[in-house]
Write a protein that binds this DNA or RNA. Sequence first.
DNA 1: GATGAATGAGAGTTCATTCAT
DNA 2: GATGAATGAACTCTCATTCAT
Lengths: 210, 210, 210, 210
Amino acid sequence: MTEKRKSIPSLVKDPKLIEKRREQIVEAAVNLFVHKGFHKTTTREIARSSGFSIGTLYEYIESKEDVLYLVCDAIHVEIESRLREAINFNGTGLKILKLALKSFIRVMDQMSDRVLLIYQEAKSLPKETLRFVLGREEGIAQVFVEIIRRGIADGSIRMDEKHVKLMADNIMVLGEMWVFRRWALHKHYTLEEYTEKQIALLLNEISVSE
Amino acid sequence: MTEKRKSIPSLVKDPKLIEKRREQIVEAAVNLFVHKGFHKTTTREIARSSGFSIGTLYEYIESKEDVLYLVCDAIHVEIESRLREAINFNGTGLKILKLALKSFIRVMDQMSDRVLLIYQEAKSLPKETLRFVLGREEGIAQVFVEIIRRGIADGSIRMDEKHVKLMADNIMVLGEMWVFRRWALHKHYTLEEYTEKQIALLLNEISVSE
Amino acid sequence: MTEKRKSIPSLVKDPKLIEKRREQIVEAAVNLFVHKGFHKTTTREIARSSGFSIGTLYEYIESKEDVLYLVCDAIHVEIESRLREAINFNGTGLKILKLALKSFIRVMDQMSDRVLLIYQEAKSLPKETLRFVLGREEGIAQVFVEIIRRGIADGSIRMDEKHVKLMADNIMVLGEMWVFRRWALHKHYTLEEYTEKQIALLLNEISVSE
Amino acid sequence: MTEKRKSIPSLVKDPKLIEKRREQIVEAAVNLFVHKGFHKTTTREIARSSGFSIGTLYEYIESKEDVLYLVCDAIHVEIESRLREAINFNGTGLKILKLALKSFIRVMDQMSDRVLLIYQEAKSLPKETLRFVLGREEGIAQVFVEIIRRGIADGSIRMDEKHVKLMADNIMVLGEMWVFRRWALHKHYTLEEYTEKQIALLLNEISVSE
DNA sequence: GATGAATGAGAGTTCATTCAT
DNA sequence: GATGAATGAACTCTCATTCAT
């Protein structure tokens, strides 16, 4: 599946160089945005942390908002790729789903500051750009849709097709919940306990009689 | 339970007047923050929308961040009071829980822009102030903790005590989910369908008799 | 005759204060623009020379271009008022015209740097604003139209009505010429010689008795 | 008569190449300056429109102001050469003068945007460079001085020698007037009407009894 | 208690120019 | 001789906050 990515014009011609510099920009900006927020980070700080001058920064982007988009996109790409890496597509759909869920929550835990970043700052993107970012997220939910459908097909998961999307969204939320409500949840559970419990709650209903 | 509220110094003596003016400020600021975000709203706009001058605004607050705190606090107060109003504490704990859940999701739906506001802007608060805001939210979760405990006591809910808090948090998340993932969920469900489905998923496991 | 003037919004409410501050701005900016040109003058220089801070400057204008407009308008107002002051409306139209021409060239001479300013910088104004400035100038030409018509009426000037406007424009140009071609003309003539000669050339044709 | 031209250093050795590249630069820059003004045109735009890179541009000039000088000079050269081409030096001085005047106004009309350019932007040149540009213009006025003297010599023009230069300057101004006051004059006259009228006014006085 | 004019640090962005390749 | 990535000083404009009235 090919997600569309917004193309940001650059004054520089060499595509390899653009990619390399934008990677530098994203790495620097993620850290700054996570710690200070988008609005309190200045373009000069981004440039300095990226290792070049403010003028050079603007050779690779057109506005500060472009940096935010690059950051959001990079985060989503990383989440999805880490998730897909972690999944072994052998076994029943149900088994794969359990594994995927575990992996997903772990990834979200490891990347929680960056996930928060997206939720808190994406609203500062221009409307059109925001749509690209939200579209990316839909792509991640799609991973779970596919796994659940597989489970239905092989009989390991019992679920009406019309609930598949909601279930995938629920799963996304389980991950986001661990991120958003960290401060509340960490008082009561470790990552492992939380994952176990949520898997139990979730799969209790859908797994075929065992 | 009495939640602590941060006290904001004012140059004005009369407490009645302070309260009245701060209500004006909050009403004006909520609208502005919802539509433009905290950072893009200016103190001048807040003052003008509040119906007085910038000088007067600063008689009742010490900084722009104070306005954000007042707004977040007011939103939490409204959520909790609307929720408590909607709950009829007659019947079994299970029955009350169902009702509370329905009400909660409805309240979150009606106040979704303001809920989003808190999640997106609260990070701009000074650390100490942020703790007050998060504490408030804990208070709302507490409503559900109480109901679940009542259900356990009267035997209508079957749940280990150690899972009560997680369940309450899960419920909070169901509401937040409807707000955060609106754009995804609205494609597939109405508010009623979503509520029904989530209640089914959630109570399936915990209700005693089925 | 009431010329329209572009109204520039101000954040300050007191109209007297606005007028006073804008006079300060114009006085400071005229000097700066004359010596450095519009583009090479910075808003900070304008503010400093006006006697207040950059922030205060922007309480009275919305953009740097507004300053340019204020300057152009003030210059035109001064030209017209100096011209009208100098004219004694007694005597025949021909006599008044001679006097007016003399006065006009003298005024243009005295204000030559400011006249140049308009011709060189007005193009930097937004199109709509430029129209106001050009309209002002038309108003000055109108002074001569009126005088010539009076001369035709009283029989002291012989001219077809359809040439009146061209003659008025010619007169404007005589003044502008002295400004624009200063560097060439000053080598050969004093202000008085130039005026005498041009009056002779111009009036030779139109005066009734010779 | 040989006018001096400012010599601009180049990093490139080959004079043919320098000339060719500078012609490219001038052609590109004239269009840009006419439409956007000198200050709002960037060196990048000049380079791109010239058909080469910014680095190459700076091989042939030392600063952006050099481009402005090249442009002003090229415009003057074109005006003078077009004017000289149009003049047939047969007949009486008076006859030649009429023809030259007609041609001059026509040339100014055709090149009005470029003439305006010089008057509005030349002030941005360094003082020393500005003198070269103004000197060029004097050269054009000289064309008329020569013709008038010829007319005096052959008896077709009646004029005191000491007024010759002023008359030549007046003629220059007639042309410039058509350019500068276009917006006012075009309402009332076509190019032909304007030319006829001005020739009549001007020559009325100087032509020997007819 | 209310006003609003004044402040100025600091923001995002531009662009003429350089120089290593 | 040609290239174009890199530079950073300098620009216009904003806005939270203060304080004299």
